[in-house]
Structures are given as C-alpha cells and as structure tokens.
C-alpha cells in the first residue's frame, strides 16, 4: 500500500535519492551505507537495553564490567566506527571539489527571489537567462555563485549538494549531469517572503546535438563572481562547446 507513494516521493524531481550526476550518486551511496550502519547500531543498542532490563542482577566484578562497557563499547566501538566513516566521507568529499581542469564555468546570481545565470551560448558568447541554467550533459561544470542581497543557497538535489550564495563571498560549486534532461533546483536558505517560490531549472543538453533555445533576457549583465577568471570563462567556452557546434 505504502510502496507506491514511497517510490513516487523517492523518485521526485527534487529527491536526493534519485541521483542523476556523479556527485549526487556518491552522496546517495554514502547515505544508504550510513543508513544500514545506523540501523544496525540502533538495533544493537536496543537489544542490549532489553537484555539489561530483563536479566536479573548478576553482579559481575566491578572492574571487568567497567572495562567492558566504558572502554570496550563506549570508547573502542564508537571510535573505530567513526574513524572508518570519517576517512570514507573525506575521500568522497575530496573527489567532489571544483578543480582547475578547464571545466565550463557558469555564473549563478541570486536575488530576492530569482536566479540569473550566465552561461556560454551560441558561439561561446555568454548568454544571460533567468530561472533556467543551460549546461552540457556528461561534462563537469563549475557554478560561480553570488548574491546581490541576502543569503540564498543554490541546490539541485538530483545533481549534488548545495552551496550558499553570500553577498561579498563568491563560491565555486562543481556539478555534473550524466544525461540530457531537465533538473529542478531551489533556494535552500531562508531568504524572506518569496523563499518557497525561488525555484529554477537546470537544462542539461546533449553537447553533440544542436544547442537548445536559450530563453535569454536582456538587462545589465551579471557581474563575474571571480573577475580574474573572466578570461578562463571565455576560454572554456571557446574551446569546448563551439568547437563541437562548428563541426556540425
């Protein structure tokens, strides 16, 4: 009975359990692993508790029992589980960071309560859009995130974790969509009255196919988040996307 709504929810457009990119996939795997571990530990503690209640008093020798409970379980068990988990999570996290490997950089600028994006468009020229971000599928891209007013947070759950948009502190966020498609995004940091409606879409297009129609808007261009990277921005646009386009 519950299976159908459960599956619908897990496969929803904003679900972290429905990963469509390598970052989201790694995190989802980490989650399932931690869920199993946590479930086992909870069950174990509950069994200990039930046994402790049900058995009669059998005073073991004081020191033995303190050694067993406090050093054995309290220190030994918890430290070993945590060490393994920490090392694993650190390794997973390191692989998700933005690196200087020539990936496409796009700009995301948050304002109450809308997102503006600048991405390489036809001919590598930067195109500004509102509410929709266009990126090539199957390639990693970095989002340079800024805010013009209060703190917001850029989050596309199916692609990966979130990154805050903070005035004066631009952030770089590495993501990738495995397949062409439309992925929903939302602001994840409370930003005032319009917060529930501060949604956007990421359109991942097939870099080998024709470019989609960019629903571009006009107006003052979004300021580059990292001014020194402006050349790099054009460079990546020039070398990757238009090269494939001009071959058609």
């Amino acid at each position: 009975m519950l299976a159908v709504p459960l599956l619908t929810a897990c496969n929803g457009p904003l679900s972290t359990l429905n990963p469509s990119g390598p970052v989201a996939l790694e995190i989802a795997r980490l989650w399932w692993a931690m869920l199993i571990g946590a479930g086992l530990i909870t069950a174990m503690v509950m069994v200990m508790l039930i046994l402790a209640i049900r058995r009669g008093p059998m005073l073991t020798e004081g020191n033995t029992s303190e050694r067993r409970w406090i050093y054995g379980w309290g220190l030994g068990f918890s430290l070993s589980v945590l060490t393994v988990l920490l090392a694993f999570a650190l390794w997973v996290g390191e692989r998700m960071l933005a690196r200087d490997d020539g990936a496409v950089t796009v700009q995301a600028q948050a304002s109450q309560w809308t997102w503006r994006f600048v991405q390489p468009g036809p001919g590598g020229q930067p195109v500004m859009t509102e509410g929709v971000l266009y990126v090539p599928a199957g390639q990693p891209f970095d989002v340079a995130i800024t805010s013009t007013d209060v703190i917001h947070s850029f989050w596309v759950p199916q692609l990966g974790g979130k990154m805050d948009a903070i005035p004066g502190h631009p952030n770089l966020h590495r993501l990738m969509a495995d397949e062409p498609g439309v992925y929903e995004g939302q602001c994840a940091e409370f930003c005032g009255r319009g917060h529930p409606f501060m949604r956007f879409e990421v359109v991942a297009y097939d870099p080998a196919g024709p470019l989609p129609d960019f629903a571009s808007i006009t107006g003052p261009m979004v300021e580059p988040a990292f001014p020194e990277d402006v050349s790099g921005f054009e460079g990546t646009g020039q070398t990757e996307i238009p090269a494939q386009e001009s071959s058609e």
Binding site: T16, L30, W31, A89
Partner: peptide, 8 residues
C-alpha cells in the same frame, strides 16, 4: 559527514 551534509 561533509558530503552528506551538503545534501541534507
């Protein structure tokens, strides 16, 4: 765990 925190 930092990566999971980024999602949750």
């Amino acid at each position: 765990m930092v990566p999971f925190n980024w999602q949750a």
